[in-house]
Design a protein around this nucleic acid. Structure first.
Lengths: 197, 197
DNA sequence: TAAAAATGAATGAACGTTCATTCATTTGAT
DNA sequence: ATCAAATGAATGAACGTTCATTCATTTTTA
């Protein structure tokens, strides 16, 4: 009943584009070489995307949507602060360790001027959930009443730096993932301490 | 005795290149448009740089050298941990708030695959000083005996995130810089708390 | 006036994008 | 059940432009 192999050209293009960007940079993505790598003709790309810039925007929004979704798995803004932050941290860490190409693509994109064009198109639900969580934690006196930039810089920047380390390192060695998760836990514990009243 | 105006073409090229990259991305830097913007002919660029890639590498290493120098101003690895970290944070913050283009260029570059080619050419003295400072702080029990990734993620990631916020925000408004420095100080205090034994 | 610095026209390769064309599949009339 | 008509996904050659780079020539400096 099921087809033996459905060749989804749109998916092939997306996949090839991400790895090309990660390997060669945003400037290294040429439409003709992308077509060759995706096993598709140049014209085909333009059936799926309006143009090169539109493709980059779409790629980012899709990748970002998926990681935002993964981050919120099992999370609720009404959770106890330490428990909620732990969920956010572990979800994010696991998702990006499993999807390193998406992590590096995201980092390249958000550090390029391209990001300005899509900032307002990011998932508003994810954003709102994180906001509510922060507001509630202050209200319940689970964390100090810190300015939002201070809160954000302490609560999340170490997480992303830690993921960067994890992806640079020797993740292929056995046992490394567990060791990393335990170091992540140490980091998280101290971050929570830093935010408390 | 001094010339009225010394036109340093090398400096004009470097300056124009940085702003072009910040405004249009690494892929937006074309040699011909760069020449036009720097008020120089295309061939002139090749008197100062071997080729486009060499220029990007040199730009990064020079920018990085200057920010590393600024960061270490008045710092010594033998300082008390809290005092030393405060010097590093404020130096870095002030330098990049005064040089936003260099900050954004650096962020773009280190998040691109180009960084791999120059990682081993970064200032080894700056690196060693930071290492010594970390080792001493543990030895003197001024901070907990944390894995280096944990230490680094907590001690510096919030600083760079905070600079990112500062550069996005309305720095041109009067009084904003002082307000930012006081928020930086709040962040630093909590980071130090997170690292202590 | 000799040397050094700078020029800018020229080059071929590569770029993003277009579009006339193909053809396997789906539709609908019989 | 048959088959002509219609569809639209996919192609890839071709377009005009822009790319990084070169080098014979001119300008500036000392």
């Amino acid at each position: 009943m099921a087809k033996e192999k459905i060749i989804d050209k749109g998916a092939a293009i997306r996949q090839a584009a991400l790895t090309m960007i990660v390997d060669e940079g945003l400037h290294g993505l040429s439409m003709q070489r992308l077509a060759a790598k995706a096993g598709v003709s140049p014209g085909t790309i333009y059936l799926y995307f309006e143009n090169r810039l539109d493709m980059l925007h779409q790629l980012y929004l899709e990748v970002r949507q998926r990681s935002d979704q993964a981050m919120l798995d099992g999370f609720s803004a009404t959770m106890d602060f330490a428990a909620g932050l732990r969920v956010l941290w572990h979800n994010t860490f696991r998702y990006f360790v499993a999807h390193p190409i998406e992590f590096r693509f995201t980092e390249q994109f958000i550090n390029s001027p391209l990001v300005a064009a899509v900032l307002d198109q990011e998932d508003p639900n994810a954003r709102q959930q994180r906001r509510d969580f922060y507001a509630r934690a202050i209200q319940n006196e689970q964390i100090a009443d810190l300015p939002v930039e201070v809160y954000w810089a302490i609560a999340f920047a170490p997480l992303y730096q830690f993921i960067r380390f994890a992806l640079e390192g020797s993740l292929h060695l056995p046992g490394d993932f567990q060791q990393l998760e335990s170091k992540l836990e140490i980091t998280l514990t101290r971050v929570i301490k830093a935010l408390q009243k």
